[in-house]
Design a protein around this nucleic acid. Sequence first.
RNA 1: GCGGGAGUAGCUCAUCCGGUAGAGCGACAGCCUUCCAAGCUGUAGGUGGCGGGUUCGAGUCCCGUCUCCCGCUCCA
Length: 508
Amino acid sequence: MLNQEDLFKKIISHAKEYGFVFPSSEIYDGLSAVYDYGQLGSELKNNIKNYWWKAMVQYHTNIVGLDSAIFMHPTTWKASGHVDAFNDPMIDNKDSKKRYRADVLVEDYMAKIEAKIDKEVAKAEKRFGDSFDKEQFVSTNPRVTGYKEKISAIGARLYKSMEENDLADIKALIEELEIACPISGSRNWTDVRQFNLMFSTQMGSLSDDANTIYLRPETAQGIFVNYLNVQKTGRMKIPFGIAQIGKAFRNEIVARQFIFRMREFEQMEMQFFVRPGTEMEWYEYWKETRVNWHKSLGIPEENYRLHNHEKLAHYANAAADIEFKFPFGFKELEGIHSRTDFDLSAHEKYSGKKLRYFDPEINESYVPYVVETSIGVDRMFLSVLSYAYTEEKLDDGSERVVMNIPPVIAPVKVAVLPLLKKDGLPEKGREIFDALKVDYMCQYDEKDAIGRRYRRQDAIGTPYCVTIDHQTLEDNTVTIRERDTMKQDRVPVDQVASIIAERIRPQL
RNA sequence: GCGGGAGUAGCUCAUCCGGUAGAGCGACAGCCUUCCAAGCUGUAGGUGGCGGGUUCGAGUCCCGUCUCCCGCUCCA
Protein backbone atom coordinates (compact mmCIF):
# COMPACT_ATOMS: atom_id res chain seq x y z
CA MET A 1 0.00 0.00 0.00
CA LEU A 2 0.87 3.63 -0.28
CA ASN A 3 2.70 5.24 2.55
CA GLN A 4 1.11 8.38 3.87
CA GLU A 5 3.60 10.76 2.36
CA ASP A 6 3.13 9.31 -1.11
CA LEU A 7 -0.60 9.36 -0.60
CA PHE A 8 -0.48 13.06 0.22
CA LYS A 9 1.54 13.77 -2.92
CA LYS A 10 -0.92 11.79 -5.00
CA ILE A 11 -3.79 13.78 -3.57
CA ILE A 12 -2.06 17.06 -4.37
CA SER A 13 -1.31 16.09 -7.95
CA HIS A 14 -4.78 14.62 -8.43
CA ALA A 15 -6.22 17.87 -7.14
CA LYS A 16 -4.23 19.76 -9.73
CA GLU A 17 -4.73 17.35 -12.60
CA TYR A 18 -8.52 17.46 -12.35
CA GLY A 19 -8.99 21.14 -11.58
CA PHE A 20 -9.58 21.14 -7.85
CA VAL A 21 -6.61 23.16 -6.61
CA PHE A 22 -3.87 25.01 -8.49
CA PRO A 23 -0.81 26.77 -7.06
CA SER A 24 -1.45 30.50 -7.15
CA SER A 25 0.10 32.49 -10.00
CA GLU A 26 1.64 29.31 -11.29
CA ILE A 27 2.90 30.79 -14.57
CA TYR A 28 5.07 33.09 -12.48
CA ASP A 29 6.41 30.14 -10.47
CA GLY A 30 3.69 30.35 -7.89
CA LEU A 31 3.30 32.30 -4.69
CA SER A 32 4.32 30.52 -1.55
CA ALA A 33 1.47 29.11 0.52
CA VAL A 34 -1.26 30.54 -1.69
CA TYR A 35 -3.53 28.37 -3.81
CA ASP A 36 -6.39 28.83 -6.27
CA TYR A 37 -9.47 26.67 -6.53
CA GLY A 38 -10.23 25.43 -10.03
CA GLN A 39 -13.42 24.48 -11.82
CA LEU A 40 -14.16 21.50 -9.59
CA GLY A 41 -12.54 22.91 -6.49
CA SER A 42 -14.72 25.99 -6.50
CA GLU A 43 -17.80 23.78 -6.78
CA LEU A 44 -16.72 21.57 -3.92
CA LYS A 45 -15.80 24.55 -1.80
CA ASN A 46 -19.14 26.23 -2.43
CA ASN A 47 -20.94 23.00 -1.61
CA ILE A 48 -19.07 22.68 1.68
CA LYS A 49 -19.94 26.27 2.58
CA ASN A 50 -23.56 25.71 1.66
CA TYR A 51 -23.78 22.56 3.70
CA TRP A 52 -22.40 24.38 6.71
CA TRP A 53 -24.60 27.43 6.21
CA LYS A 54 -27.69 25.30 5.99
CA ALA A 55 -26.82 23.35 9.12
CA MET A 56 -25.97 26.46 11.10
CA VAL A 57 -28.23 29.24 9.84
CA GLN A 58 -31.12 27.61 8.04
CA TYR A 59 -31.71 24.83 10.56
CA HIS A 60 -31.26 26.99 13.67
CA THR A 61 -33.95 29.60 13.99
CA ASN A 62 -31.86 31.53 16.52
CA ILE A 63 -28.79 31.85 14.31
CA VAL A 64 -28.48 34.47 11.60
CA GLY A 65 -25.84 35.22 9.02
CA LEU A 66 -23.47 38.11 8.54
CA ASP A 67 -20.99 39.17 5.89
CA SER A 68 -18.69 41.74 7.42
CA ALA A 69 -15.85 43.49 5.61
CA ILE A 70 -12.29 42.24 5.66
CA PHE A 71 -11.07 45.75 6.42
CA MET A 72 -11.84 46.85 9.94
CA HIS A 73 -11.01 49.80 12.13
CA PRO A 74 -7.45 49.27 13.41
CA THR A 75 -8.55 49.58 17.02
CA THR A 76 -10.47 46.35 16.55
CA TRP A 77 -7.19 44.47 16.59
CA LYS A 78 -5.91 46.27 19.64
CA ALA A 79 -9.07 45.27 21.48
CA SER A 80 -8.90 41.68 20.30
CA GLY A 81 -5.31 41.34 21.44
CA HIS A 82 -3.96 40.54 17.99
CA VAL A 83 -1.72 43.58 17.71
CA ASP A 84 0.20 42.37 20.76
CA ALA A 85 -0.21 38.64 20.50
CA PHE A 86 0.58 38.48 16.80
CA ASN A 87 3.77 40.49 17.07
CA ASP A 88 6.72 38.37 17.98
CA PRO A 89 10.33 39.56 18.05
CA MET A 90 12.40 36.65 16.76
CA ILE A 91 16.12 36.00 16.92
CA ASP A 92 18.24 33.24 15.38
CA ASN A 93 21.36 31.63 16.69
CA LYS A 94 23.80 31.51 13.80
CA ASP A 95 25.55 28.37 15.00
CA SER A 96 22.68 26.09 15.94
CA LYS A 97 20.38 27.66 13.33
CA LYS A 98 17.67 27.62 15.94
CA ARG A 99 15.11 30.38 16.09
CA TYR A 100 13.78 31.79 19.32
CA ARG A 101 11.37 34.41 20.45
CA ALA A 102 13.69 37.08 21.75
CA ASP A 103 11.43 38.02 24.64
CA VAL A 104 11.14 34.39 25.66
CA LEU A 105 14.93 34.09 25.79
CA VAL A 106 15.09 37.02 28.16
CA GLU A 107 12.20 35.74 30.21
CA ASP A 108 13.87 32.35 30.53
CA TYR A 109 16.95 34.14 31.78
CA MET A 110 14.83 35.93 34.37
CA ALA A 111 13.34 32.61 35.40
CA LYS A 112 16.82 31.27 35.98
CA ILE A 113 17.56 34.09 38.40
CA GLU A 114 14.25 33.38 40.06
CA ALA A 115 15.39 29.80 40.51
CA LYS A 116 18.55 31.07 42.21
CA ILE A 117 16.44 32.98 44.70
CA ASP A 118 14.48 29.85 45.47
CA LYS A 119 17.73 28.04 46.03
CA GLU A 120 18.92 30.69 48.49
CA VAL A 121 15.63 30.48 50.33
CA ALA A 122 15.82 26.70 50.53
CA LYS A 123 19.37 26.88 51.85
CA ALA A 124 18.47 29.46 54.48
CA GLU A 125 15.43 27.51 55.53
CA LYS A 126 17.64 24.54 56.23
CA ARG A 127 20.08 26.65 58.16
CA PHE A 128 17.58 28.52 60.35
CA GLY A 129 15.09 25.73 60.84
CA ASP A 130 11.80 26.59 62.52
CA SER A 131 12.77 30.14 63.25
CA PHE A 132 13.04 30.91 59.55
CA ASP A 133 10.99 33.89 58.41
CA LYS A 134 10.76 33.72 54.66
CA GLU A 135 9.28 37.18 54.21
CA GLN A 136 12.01 38.77 56.19
CA PHE A 137 14.75 36.77 54.58
CA VAL A 138 13.61 37.60 51.06
CA SER A 139 13.37 41.29 51.76
CA THR A 140 16.65 41.64 53.66
CA ASN A 141 19.15 39.09 52.40
CA PRO A 142 21.49 41.11 50.19
CA ARG A 143 22.01 38.31 47.70
CA VAL A 144 18.29 37.78 47.23
CA THR A 145 17.46 41.45 47.00
CA GLY A 146 20.24 41.80 44.48
CA TYR A 147 18.69 39.09 42.33
CA LYS A 148 15.30 40.68 42.66
CA GLU A 149 16.55 44.06 41.57
CA LYS A 150 18.25 42.47 38.63
CA ILE A 151 15.04 40.73 37.57
CA SER A 152 12.96 43.82 37.79
CA ALA A 153 15.58 45.89 35.97
CA ILE A 154 15.73 43.37 33.14
CA GLY A 155 11.97 43.08 33.04
CA ALA A 156 11.46 46.82 32.96
CA ARG A 157 13.90 47.21 30.11
CA LEU A 158 12.51 44.28 28.13
CA TYR A 159 8.91 45.39 28.37
CA LYS A 160 9.79 49.00 27.62
CA SER A 161 11.66 47.91 24.49
CA MET A 162 8.82 45.63 23.50
CA GLU A 163 6.38 48.44 23.99
CA GLU A 164 8.47 50.83 21.91
CA ASN A 165 9.30 48.20 19.35
CA ASP A 166 12.99 48.81 19.99
CA LEU A 167 14.38 45.64 18.47
CA ALA A 168 17.98 46.78 18.65
CA ASP A 169 17.71 47.23 22.38
CA ILE A 170 16.27 43.76 22.84
CA LYS A 171 19.28 42.39 21.05
CA ALA A 172 21.59 44.58 23.11
CA LEU A 173 19.92 43.23 26.24
CA ILE A 174 20.46 39.65 25.15
CA GLU A 175 24.11 40.39 24.47
CA GLU A 176 24.65 42.24 27.75
CA LEU A 177 23.11 39.40 29.71
CA GLU A 178 25.36 37.04 27.76
CA ILE A 179 22.46 34.75 27.03
CA ALA A 180 23.65 31.72 25.12
CA CYS A 181 21.78 29.41 22.83
CA PRO A 182 20.76 26.30 24.79
CA ILE A 183 21.63 24.12 21.81
CA SER A 184 24.92 25.46 20.52
CA GLY A 185 25.94 27.26 23.68
CA SER A 186 27.16 30.16 21.56
CA ARG A 187 26.21 33.80 21.72
CA ASN A 188 26.38 34.34 18.01
CA TRP A 189 23.00 35.94 17.38
CA THR A 190 21.33 37.55 14.39
CA ASP A 191 19.52 40.83 14.76
CA VAL A 192 16.12 40.71 16.32
CA ARG A 193 13.43 40.81 13.68
CA GLN A 194 9.75 41.41 13.96
CA PHE A 195 7.44 38.74 12.68
CA ASN A 196 4.13 40.42 12.28
CA LEU A 197 1.55 37.75 11.78
CA MET A 198 -1.04 40.25 10.54
CA PHE A 199 -0.93 41.61 7.00
CA SER A 200 -1.10 45.36 6.87
CA THR A 201 -2.02 47.69 4.07
CA GLN A 202 -2.90 51.33 3.51
CA MET A 203 -6.36 52.78 3.53
CA GLY A 204 -6.65 55.75 1.21
CA SER A 205 -4.31 56.64 -1.58
CA LEU A 206 -1.91 58.71 0.51
CA SER A 207 0.46 56.43 2.31
CA ASP A 208 0.73 57.60 5.82
CA ASP A 209 1.33 55.62 8.97
CA ALA A 210 -1.93 56.78 10.43
CA ASN A 211 -3.76 54.99 7.63
CA THR A 212 -2.35 51.56 8.25
CA ILE A 213 -5.04 48.94 8.48
CA TYR A 214 -4.92 45.17 8.73
CA LEU A 215 -6.39 42.36 6.75
CA ARG A 216 -8.38 40.50 9.36
CA PRO A 217 -6.61 37.49 10.89
CA GLU A 218 -9.96 36.01 11.93
CA THR A 219 -13.55 36.65 10.97
CA ALA A 220 -14.81 36.58 14.55
CA GLN A 221 -14.17 40.25 15.25
CA GLY A 222 -16.49 41.25 12.43
CA ILE A 223 -19.21 39.43 14.31
CA PHE A 224 -18.36 40.99 17.67
CA VAL A 225 -18.36 44.55 16.41
CA ASN A 226 -21.75 43.91 14.80
CA TYR A 227 -23.18 42.10 17.77
CA LEU A 228 -25.38 44.98 18.82
CA ASN A 229 -26.52 45.82 15.29
CA VAL A 230 -27.70 42.29 14.68
CA GLN A 231 -29.19 41.82 18.13
CA LYS A 232 -31.26 44.96 17.83
CA THR A 233 -32.32 44.85 14.18
CA GLY A 234 -32.98 41.12 14.22
CA ARG A 235 -34.77 41.34 17.59
CA MET A 236 -32.53 38.50 18.72
CA LYS A 237 -33.02 37.04 22.20
CA ILE A 238 -30.20 35.38 24.05
CA PRO A 239 -29.15 32.68 23.43
CA PHE A 240 -28.55 33.44 19.76
CA GLY A 241 -25.81 33.09 17.21
CA ILE A 242 -24.24 34.98 14.33
CA ALA A 243 -22.62 32.97 11.56
CA GLN A 244 -20.16 34.14 8.96
CA ILE A 245 -18.10 32.67 6.16
CA GLY A 246 -15.16 34.71 4.98
CA LYS A 247 -11.51 35.09 4.17
CA ALA A 248 -8.85 35.68 6.79
CA PHE A 249 -5.14 36.34 6.44
CA ARG A 250 -2.13 35.34 8.51
CA ASN A 251 1.53 35.73 7.80
CA GLU A 252 2.56 32.24 8.84
CA ILE A 253 6.26 31.90 9.46
CA VAL A 254 6.25 28.52 7.83
CA ALA A 255 3.23 27.76 5.74
CA ARG A 256 3.27 24.36 4.17
CA GLN A 257 1.23 21.21 3.82
CA PHE A 258 -0.67 22.32 0.75
CA ILE A 259 -3.95 24.05 1.59
CA PHE A 260 -3.76 23.06 5.26
CA ARG A 261 -1.91 26.20 6.26
CA MET A 262 -2.26 29.06 3.83
CA ARG A 263 -1.59 32.75 4.16
CA GLU A 264 -5.02 33.51 2.76
CA PHE A 265 -7.70 31.16 3.97
CA GLU A 266 -11.39 30.98 4.59
CA GLN A 267 -13.21 30.45 7.84
CA MET A 268 -16.72 29.41 8.75
CA GLU A 269 -17.38 30.82 12.17
CA MET A 270 -20.37 31.08 14.43
CA GLN A 271 -20.38 33.07 17.62
CA PHE A 272 -23.11 32.04 20.02
CA PHE A 273 -24.08 34.60 22.66
CA VAL A 274 -25.23 33.19 25.98
CA ARG A 275 -26.11 34.22 29.50
CA PRO A 276 -23.01 34.18 31.75
CA GLY A 277 -22.97 31.00 33.79
CA THR A 278 -24.61 28.94 31.07
CA GLU A 279 -21.59 28.91 28.79
CA MET A 280 -20.41 25.42 29.70
CA GLU A 281 -23.77 23.88 28.78
CA TRP A 282 -23.63 25.55 25.42
CA TYR A 283 -20.02 24.67 24.97
CA GLU A 284 -20.94 21.00 25.41
CA TYR A 285 -23.95 21.41 23.14
CA TRP A 286 -21.87 22.86 20.35
CA LYS A 287 -19.12 20.29 20.65
CA GLU A 288 -21.68 17.56 20.14
CA THR A 289 -23.59 19.39 17.43
CA ARG A 290 -20.46 20.07 15.42
CA VAL A 291 -19.19 16.52 15.72
CA ASN A 292 -22.57 15.34 14.45
CA TRP A 293 -22.33 17.70 11.50
CA HIS A 294 -19.10 16.03 10.44
CA LYS A 295 -20.57 12.58 10.93
CA SER A 296 -23.59 13.49 8.82
CA LEU A 297 -21.41 13.53 5.73
CA GLY A 298 -20.86 9.82 6.10
CA ILE A 299 -17.10 9.98 6.55
CA PRO A 300 -16.34 7.20 9.07
CA GLU A 301 -16.02 8.25 12.67
CA GLU A 302 -12.51 6.89 13.16
CA ASN A 303 -11.25 9.74 11.00
CA TYR A 304 -12.22 12.23 13.70
CA ARG A 305 -10.92 12.84 17.18
CA LEU A 306 -11.97 15.32 19.82
CA HIS A 307 -9.09 16.96 21.59
CA ASN A 308 -9.68 19.04 24.72
CA HIS A 309 -7.16 21.80 25.26
CA GLU A 310 -5.23 21.92 28.48
CA LYS A 311 -3.58 25.26 27.96
CA LEU A 312 -5.94 27.92 26.81
CA ALA A 313 -5.63 31.03 24.69
CA HIS A 314 -5.89 34.37 26.44
CA TYR A 315 -9.58 34.73 25.61
CA ALA A 316 -10.92 31.28 26.47
CA ASN A 317 -12.03 29.34 29.53
CA ALA A 318 -12.53 26.08 27.68
CA ALA A 319 -11.48 24.88 24.25
CA ALA A 320 -11.59 21.74 22.17
CA ASP A 321 -10.52 20.79 18.67
CA ILE A 322 -12.18 18.43 16.28
CA GLU A 323 -9.19 16.82 14.65
CA PHE A 324 -9.16 14.96 11.37
CA LYS A 325 -6.89 12.17 10.30
CA PHE A 326 -5.03 13.87 7.48
CA PRO A 327 -2.33 11.97 5.58
CA PHE A 328 0.20 13.82 7.74
CA GLY A 329 -1.55 12.85 10.99
CA PHE A 330 -4.40 14.01 13.17
CA LYS A 331 -4.61 17.78 12.85
CA GLU A 332 -7.03 20.49 13.88
CA LEU A 333 -10.00 20.87 11.58
CA GLU A 334 -12.37 22.82 13.77
CA GLY A 335 -12.19 24.59 17.11
CA ILE A 336 -14.93 25.06 19.67
CA HIS A 337 -14.03 27.73 22.20
CA SER A 338 -15.75 29.20 25.18
CA ARG A 339 -14.51 32.78 24.78
CA THR A 340 -16.17 34.22 27.88
CA ASP A 341 -16.95 37.93 27.62
CA PHE A 342 -13.37 38.69 26.67
CA ASP A 343 -14.08 40.12 23.23
CA LEU A 344 -17.26 42.05 23.90
CA SER A 345 -15.80 43.51 27.10
CA ALA A 346 -12.65 44.51 25.28
CA HIS A 347 -14.70 46.22 22.58
CA GLU A 348 -16.76 47.99 25.23
CA LYS A 349 -13.59 49.30 26.75
CA TYR A 350 -11.91 50.41 23.53
CA SER A 351 -15.00 51.79 21.82
CA GLY A 352 -16.70 53.26 24.84
CA LYS A 353 -19.99 51.79 23.60
CA LYS A 354 -22.17 49.66 25.81
CA LEU A 355 -22.42 46.14 24.41
CA ARG A 356 -24.80 44.82 27.01
CA TYR A 357 -27.94 42.80 26.80
CA PHE A 358 -30.95 43.24 29.01
CA ASP A 359 -32.27 39.81 29.86
CA PRO A 360 -35.99 40.07 30.67
CA GLU A 361 -36.09 36.55 32.06
CA ILE A 362 -33.86 37.41 34.97
CA ASN A 363 -34.36 41.15 34.80
CA GLU A 364 -30.65 41.83 34.55
CA SER A 365 -28.32 43.32 32.04
CA TYR A 366 -24.93 41.81 31.27
CA VAL A 367 -22.21 41.43 28.68
CA PRO A 368 -23.00 38.08 27.03
CA TYR A 369 -20.57 35.20 27.09
CA VAL A 370 -19.62 33.69 23.77
CA VAL A 371 -19.22 30.11 22.58
CA GLU A 372 -17.46 29.97 19.23
CA THR A 373 -17.34 27.30 16.58
CA SER A 374 -14.68 27.94 13.98
CA ILE A 375 -13.79 25.70 11.06
CA GLY A 376 -11.40 26.27 8.19
CA VAL A 377 -13.10 25.84 4.81
CA ASP A 378 -9.81 24.89 3.22
CA ARG A 379 -9.04 22.34 5.91
CA MET A 380 -12.50 20.90 5.53
CA PHE A 381 -11.90 20.74 1.79
CA LEU A 382 -8.60 18.95 2.35
CA SER A 383 -10.19 16.53 4.79
CA VAL A 384 -12.76 15.61 2.15
CA LEU A 385 -10.08 15.12 -0.51
CA SER A 386 -7.92 13.10 1.86
CA TYR A 387 -10.73 10.80 2.80
CA ALA A 388 -12.14 10.55 -0.71
CA TYR A 389 -9.02 9.71 -2.70
CA THR A 390 -9.01 5.94 -3.19
CA GLU A 391 -7.05 3.64 -5.44
CA GLU A 392 -9.02 0.46 -5.94
CA LYS A 393 -8.21 -2.89 -7.39
CA LEU A 394 -11.30 -4.36 -9.02
CA ASP A 395 -12.34 -7.99 -9.28
CA ASP A 396 -11.39 -8.15 -12.94
CA GLY A 397 -7.84 -7.13 -12.04
CA SER A 398 -8.15 -3.57 -13.33
CA GLU A 399 -7.60 -0.50 -11.20
CA ARG A 400 -9.50 2.66 -10.68
CA VAL A 401 -8.94 5.93 -8.89
CA VAL A 402 -12.18 7.06 -7.33
CA MET A 403 -13.00 10.09 -5.24
CA ASN A 404 -15.54 8.96 -2.65
CA ILE A 405 -16.72 12.49 -2.04
CA PRO A 406 -19.91 12.59 0.03
CA PRO A 407 -22.57 12.95 -2.70
CA VAL A 408 -24.24 15.95 -1.09
CA ILE A 409 -21.09 18.05 -1.60
CA ALA A 410 -19.71 16.42 -4.76
CA PRO A 411 -18.79 19.06 -7.37
CA VAL A 412 -20.64 17.31 -10.19
CA LYS A 413 -23.72 15.40 -9.18
CA VAL A 414 -24.64 13.66 -12.42
CA ALA A 415 -22.94 12.72 -15.67
CA VAL A 416 -25.14 12.04 -18.67
CA LEU A 417 -23.61 9.46 -20.99
CA PRO A 418 -25.04 8.10 -24.23
CA LEU A 419 -23.82 4.54 -24.55
CA LEU A 420 -22.92 5.07 -28.22
CA LYS A 421 -22.30 8.17 -30.24
CA LYS A 422 -24.89 7.22 -32.88
CA ASP A 423 -28.43 5.96 -33.41
CA GLY A 424 -29.93 9.07 -31.85
CA LEU A 425 -28.50 8.36 -28.40
CA PRO A 426 -26.55 11.65 -28.22
CA GLU A 427 -29.71 13.61 -29.06
CA LYS A 428 -31.64 11.83 -26.35
CA GLY A 429 -28.71 12.39 -24.00
CA ARG A 430 -28.69 16.13 -24.65
CA GLU A 431 -32.37 16.27 -23.92
CA ILE A 432 -31.94 14.52 -20.57
CA PHE A 433 -28.90 16.66 -19.75
CA ASP A 434 -30.81 19.86 -20.40
CA ALA A 435 -33.58 18.71 -18.09
CA LEU A 436 -31.22 17.71 -15.28
CA LYS A 437 -28.95 20.76 -15.40
CA VAL A 438 -31.73 22.89 -13.96
CA ASP A 439 -31.45 21.01 -10.67
CA TYR A 440 -27.91 19.71 -10.60
CA MET A 441 -24.37 20.39 -11.63
CA CYS A 442 -24.13 18.01 -14.59
CA GLN A 443 -21.63 16.89 -17.18
CA TYR A 444 -22.37 15.51 -20.61
CA ASP A 445 -19.81 13.19 -22.20
CA GLU A 446 -20.07 11.16 -25.39
CA LYS A 447 -16.37 10.73 -26.15
CA ASP A 448 -14.58 7.37 -25.77
CA ALA A 449 -15.74 3.99 -24.55
CA ILE A 450 -18.36 3.93 -21.83
CA GLY A 451 -16.01 2.32 -19.30
CA ARG A 452 -13.46 5.06 -19.75
CA ARG A 453 -16.12 7.69 -19.23
CA TYR A 454 -17.21 6.02 -16.00
CA ARG A 455 -13.60 6.15 -14.81
CA ARG A 456 -13.32 9.80 -15.68
CA GLN A 457 -16.36 10.54 -13.55
CA ASP A 458 -15.01 8.36 -10.73
CA ALA A 459 -11.82 10.39 -10.77
CA ILE A 460 -13.69 13.63 -10.08
CA GLY A 461 -16.11 12.08 -7.61
CA THR A 462 -19.35 12.28 -9.58
CA PRO A 463 -21.74 10.12 -7.55
CA TYR A 464 -24.20 9.26 -10.35
CA CYS A 465 -23.92 8.44 -14.03
CA VAL A 466 -27.04 8.32 -16.16
CA THR A 467 -26.56 6.17 -19.25
CA ILE A 468 -28.75 6.27 -22.36
CA ASP A 469 -28.98 3.09 -24.42
CA HIS A 470 -31.27 1.77 -27.16
CA GLN A 471 -33.86 0.71 -24.65
CA THR A 472 -34.13 4.35 -23.60
CA LEU A 473 -35.48 5.18 -27.06
CA GLU A 474 -38.11 2.48 -26.72
CA ASP A 475 -39.42 2.88 -23.18
CA ASN A 476 -37.86 6.09 -21.83
CA THR A 477 -35.82 4.43 -19.11
CA VAL A 478 -32.15 4.97 -18.31
CA THR A 479 -29.66 3.37 -15.98
CA ILE A 480 -28.28 5.17 -12.93
CA ARG A 481 -24.84 3.97 -11.98
CA GLU A 482 -23.67 4.54 -8.47
CA ARG A 483 -20.06 5.61 -8.09
CA ASP A 484 -19.01 3.69 -5.00
CA THR A 485 -20.60 0.34 -5.81
CA MET A 486 -20.63 0.64 -9.62
CA LYS A 487 -24.10 -0.91 -9.45
CA GLN A 488 -26.81 0.17 -11.89
CA ASP A 489 -30.56 0.57 -11.61
CA ARG A 490 -32.89 1.04 -14.53
CA VAL A 491 -35.40 3.79 -13.90
CA PRO A 492 -37.83 5.96 -15.88
CA VAL A 493 -36.22 9.14 -17.20
CA ASP A 494 -38.73 11.41 -15.53
CA GLN A 495 -37.87 10.02 -12.11
CA VAL A 496 -34.12 10.58 -12.34
CA ALA A 497 -34.16 14.04 -10.76
CA SER A 498 -36.26 12.99 -7.79
CA ILE A 499 -34.29 9.78 -7.22
CA ILE A 500 -31.05 11.74 -7.07
CA ALA A 501 -32.65 14.36 -4.83
CA GLU A 502 -33.62 11.63 -2.41
CA ARG A 503 -30.15 10.11 -2.41
CA ILE A 504 -28.26 13.35 -1.82
CA ARG A 505 -30.61 14.86 0.73
CA PRO A 506 -28.56 16.15 3.68
CA GLN A 507 -28.81 13.86 6.69
CA LEU A 508 -28.78 16.71 9.18
C1' G B 1 16.13 31.43 7.64
C1' C B 2 19.47 26.86 7.58
C1' G B 3 20.61 21.76 5.62
C1' G B 4 19.42 18.08 1.75
C1' G B 5 16.94 16.83 -3.02
C1' A B 6 14.60 18.26 -7.64
C1' G B 7 13.15 21.49 -12.02
C1' U B 8 12.84 18.57 -19.99
C1' A B 9 5.20 18.25 -23.50
C1' G B 10 -0.93 18.68 -19.34
C1' C B 11 1.20 14.07 -16.36
C1' U B 12 5.32 10.18 -15.68
C1' C B 13 9.96 10.03 -17.51
C1' A B 14 14.11 9.20 -21.42
C1' U B 15 18.11 11.59 -24.30
C1' C B 16 25.59 7.10 -23.24
C1' C B 17 31.81 10.63 -22.85
C1' G B 18 28.59 18.15 -24.98
C1' G B 19 26.55 17.57 -31.73
C1' U B 20 20.41 21.67 -32.95
C1' A B 21 14.55 16.82 -27.94
C1' G B 22 11.77 11.55 -27.76
C1' A B 23 8.24 7.82 -25.58
C1' G B 24 4.03 6.29 -22.82
C1' C B 25 -0.25 8.18 -20.75
C1' G B 26 -3.51 12.35 -21.28
C1' A B 27 -6.08 16.09 -24.62
C1' C B 28 -8.42 17.05 -29.35
C1' A B 29 -10.69 15.25 -34.29
C1' G B 30 -12.31 10.85 -36.59
C1' C B 31 -13.14 5.34 -37.03
C1' C B 32 -14.74 0.92 -34.40
C1' U B 33 -17.84 -0.49 -30.36
C1' U B 34 -25.14 -2.01 -26.96
C1' C B 35 -22.27 -1.07 -20.17
C1' C B 36 -16.94 -0.36 -16.67
C1' A B 37 -9.28 2.01 -18.19
C1' A B 38 -5.02 0.46 -21.62
C1' G B 39 -8.56 -1.34 -30.32
C1' C B 40 -7.25 1.85 -34.96
C1' U B 41 -5.91 6.65 -37.71
C1' G B 42 -4.59 11.53 -37.43
C1' U B 43 -3.56 16.43 -34.92
C1' A B 44 -1.86 19.82 -31.45
C1' G B 45 1.59 20.65 -27.63
C1' G B 46 8.66 22.01 -25.62
C1' U B 47 12.97 29.64 -25.86
C1' G B 48 14.78 21.82 -21.46
C1' G B 49 12.75 27.06 -14.52
C1' C B 50 15.36 31.89 -15.49
C1' G B 51 20.12 34.72 -16.31
C1' G B 52 25.19 34.54 -17.38
C1' G B 53 29.89 31.91 -18.60
C1' U B 54 33.12 28.08 -21.15
C1' U B 55 32.83 26.07 -26.29
C1' C B 56 32.71 25.99 -33.36
C1' G B 57 28.38 23.97 -30.74
C1' A B 58 25.16 23.49 -23.99
C1' G B 59 19.12 20.13 -21.78
C1' U B 60 24.07 17.97 -20.93
C1' C B 61 29.99 21.39 -18.04
C1' C B 62 30.67 25.96 -14.55
C1' C B 63 28.56 30.26 -11.73
C1' G B 64 24.37 32.95 -10.10
C1' U B 65 19.19 33.21 -9.29
C1' C B 66 14.04 31.59 -8.68
C1' U B 67 10.51 27.90 -7.49
C1' C B 68 8.95 23.27 -5.44
C1' C B 69 9.66 18.94 -2.13
C1' C B 70 11.81 16.76 2.63
C1' G B 71 13.88 17.94 7.57
C1' C B 72 14.67 21.77 11.52
C1' U B 73 12.78 26.40 13.63
C1' C B 74 7.64 29.22 14.67
C1' C B 75 2.26 29.65 15.23
C1' A B 76 -3.79 30.76 16.26
